[in-house]
């Protein structure tokens, strides 16, 4: 029930921003649509009844976001360096690496995989249970994993276990 209510609230605010009309007709249409969606698929956005945990995770994400943005800037500059280097093939040493992540929840794991894709020299290839396969562009990028990012995500998204 709590999950359905929370889904309804999120959906309705999304509707209000997207439609931009605040007269009675459009708002009532939005309420009807959001009620239907919340009734039929209320458990998808908040798995189970852990609304409080999800809200805590959202604030953790907000704290994690600036660091991620900085990492993306660094990684783009690194790609720029490699791409604009005349002998770029000497700079590259592509390799596939596998490792196990310590993160427990699906949400944290997916966030970790996305972050790996966005940080210097690495992209996630596959994520099965706790085993991740990562394609690294250089050796130094391969050695920096899992490292600091996993700790930061664990602090942001799984505070009770850290």
């Amino acid at each position: 029930m709590k999950a359905k209510l929370a889904t309804f609230a999120v959906m309705l605010s999304f509707w209000a921003i997207l439609s931009g009309m605040f007269d009675a007709f459009h708002l009532s249409l939005g309420v009807i649509c959001c009620l239907l969606v919340a009734l039929f698929s209320g458990e998808m956005l908040f798995e189970g009844l852990r609304v409080e945990v999800r809200v805590k995770q959202i604030f953790g994400m907000l704290a994690y976001f600036p660091w991620l943005l900085w990492a993306i800037v660094l990684s783009s500059l690194q790609v720029a360096y490699i791409v604009l280097h005349p002998q770029m093939l000497d700079k590259m040493e592509p390799q596939l690496i596998r490792f196990k992540t310590k993160l427990k929840s699906n949400f944290a794991r997916v966030t970790f995989a996305q972050s790996i894709t966005l940080t210097p020299g690495t992209i996630t290839v596959s994520l099965q249970d706790d085993e991740m396969t990562v394609y690294a562009l250089t050796r130094s990028a391969a050695e920096s994993l899992p490292g600091e990012m996993e700790r930061r995500i664990a602090r942001a998204l799984e505070p009770e276990e850290a």
Binding site: I72, V73, S75, S76, V79, A80, V83, T117, L118, G121, I123, L137
Partner: peptide, 9 residues
């Protein structure tokens, strides 16, 4: 690498 990172940023 080029496509994923640079385009996002």
């Amino acid at each position: 690498h080029a496509a994923g990172k640079c385009d996002t940023l």
